[in-house]
């Protein structure tokens, strides 16, 4: 029974997953082990997405099922002090002036299920906020997202600001979004661009390892 929840979540079986959690809790199963199974299930979802078996709706729905599981587990979970070991730290956000977040959220999701500690700064993120977040978290990778052509300038300004504060050689910077390609990479001074959330994971793993 140990791995049933992993499969239910990986196969996107919402009613089965939630019923299993409720039944297990009633039977006195350790909620922490259920949470662990749920996380394993999410990792499988991420893998299937990377393999081209799953697409965006599956990612979004898996997140929704996980939310339901956590809601049921939360009252039973003790606050544990031990933090999970992560591969590395990454700051991600949609650059100033741009409020698009679908692509950015997918990148955050995939980095997270692949074991990175992601600081998601949200949308329309001012240049300084990126700089501050890099300093505060000690992140070594930065992901800049943008959908509009105006994002080219905001990305460049953000990277220039990172350069000015002396952090440029401490971080690798990747960019992505609707109209981003090699020309934009060169223009903004980023280290790489990615076409999708899998590219972001590949780039981060290449830089951080894991």
């Amino acid at each position: 029974m140990a791995e049933e929840l992993v499969q239910f979540l990986a196969d996107l079986k919402e009613p089965e997953a939630l019923a299993f959690v409720e039944k297990s809790l009633a039977e006195g199963t350790d909620p922490a082990s259920l949470l662990d199974q749920a996380k394993k299930g999410m990792t499988l979802v991420g893998q299937r997405f990377a393999d081209g078996e799953y697409f965006i709706p599956s990612l979004i729905f898996s997140g929704e099922i996980l939310k339901g599981i956590i809601q049921r587990l939360e009252p039973h979970l003790k606050k544990s002090g031990e933090a999970e070991e992560k591969l590395g730290k990454i700051v991600v956000g949609t650059v100033a002036g741009d409020i698009h977040d679908i692509g950015k959220n997918l990148v955050v999701f995939m980095l997270d299920v692949n074991g990175f500690e992601v600081t998601d700064l949200g949308i329309d993120v001012p240049v300084d906020k990126f700089v501050d977040a890099i300093k505060e978290t000690g992140s070594t990778v930065v992901g800049l997202s943008g959908f509009l052509t105006l994002a080219y300038d905001s990305m460049k300004e953000t990277i220039d600001a990172i350069e000015k504060t002396g952090l440029r050689d401490k971080v690798k910077i990747m960019i992505g979004g609707g109209q981003i390609d090699d020309d934009v990479k060169v223009f903004t001074g980023a280290d790489a661009y990615g076409r999708d959330a899998m590219d972001a994971v590949k780039l981060a793993k290449g830089w951080i390892g894991g």
């Binding site: 052509t149 109209q179 981003i180 390609d181 020309d183 934009v184 223009f187």
Partner: peptide, 9 residues
């Protein structure tokens, strides 16, 4: 014709 090209090339 890509937007990036019209802007940057």
């Amino acid at each position: 014709v890509p937007s990036s090209m019209l802007r940057l090339a």
